[in-house]
């Protein structure tokens, strides 16, 4: 069974603990600018939304890569960038419809979420449960349950 990141923006407070956890896991420094997950602040609406790669099955980035530097981790289902193979051509950043693959000018390679090998640091760090790591086939379970509760006749 694969697991997936479940993002619930209504629970997000915009604290950026996830961005620090992600950058620490991958860059060994607290550096939100190098985070694979980003939190957006829709200021005028008073809303926050975390966003990152959803690990598409038929991943555009993977198919677009001319050097096969993006491969599937069979254990987690994550599409991972093999740094040694990546040539930094950025075609994947164009191919991804969601903008979740990005170029890192410090390394000359692209970076994207790899689910931290199956223990995503962002989900561990999130203080409000806005980011959780759940059964990939049931990311809608919590919402289904909430709506299901409304179908029960009131006593």
């Amino acid at each position: 069974m694969h697991k997936a990141l479940q993002l619930e923006p209504e629970k997000c407070t915009g604290c950026l603990q996830c961005e620090m956890a992600c950058s620490y896991e991958n860059e060994q420094a607290f550096n939100p600018s190098k985070s694979r997950i980003k939190v957006f602040n829709f200021h005028d609406e008073g809303r926050f939304a975390p966003y990152t790669c959803s690990q598409c099955s038929e991943a555009w980035c993977m198919h677009a890569c001319p050097v096969e530097a993006i491969v599937i981790n069979q254990k987690t289902g994550a599409k991972e960038v093999i740094e040694d193979v990546c040539v930094g051509c950025k075609v994947c950043t164009i191919a991804c419809p969601f903008g979740t693959v990005n170029y890192n000018s410090d390394s000359g390679k692209v970076i994207k979420c790899d689910l931290c090998g199956g223990d995503p640091a962002c989900a561990t760090a999130c203080p409000t449960g806005a980011i959780t790591y759940v059964d990939a086939d049931h990311t809608g379970l919590a919402r289904m349950k909430a709506h299901a509760s409304q179908t029960i006749p009131k006593a």
Binding site: C15, L16, Q17, R47
Partner: peptide, 19 residues
């Protein structure tokens, strides 16, 4: 009150966002 918002790195998030 629209929501509560956090400052950088804050796991309390006492900030008020209002209209």
């Amino acid at each position: 009150l629209t929501t509560n918002g956090a400052c950088f790195g804050c796991t309390i998030a006492c900030g008020r966002i209002s209209t």
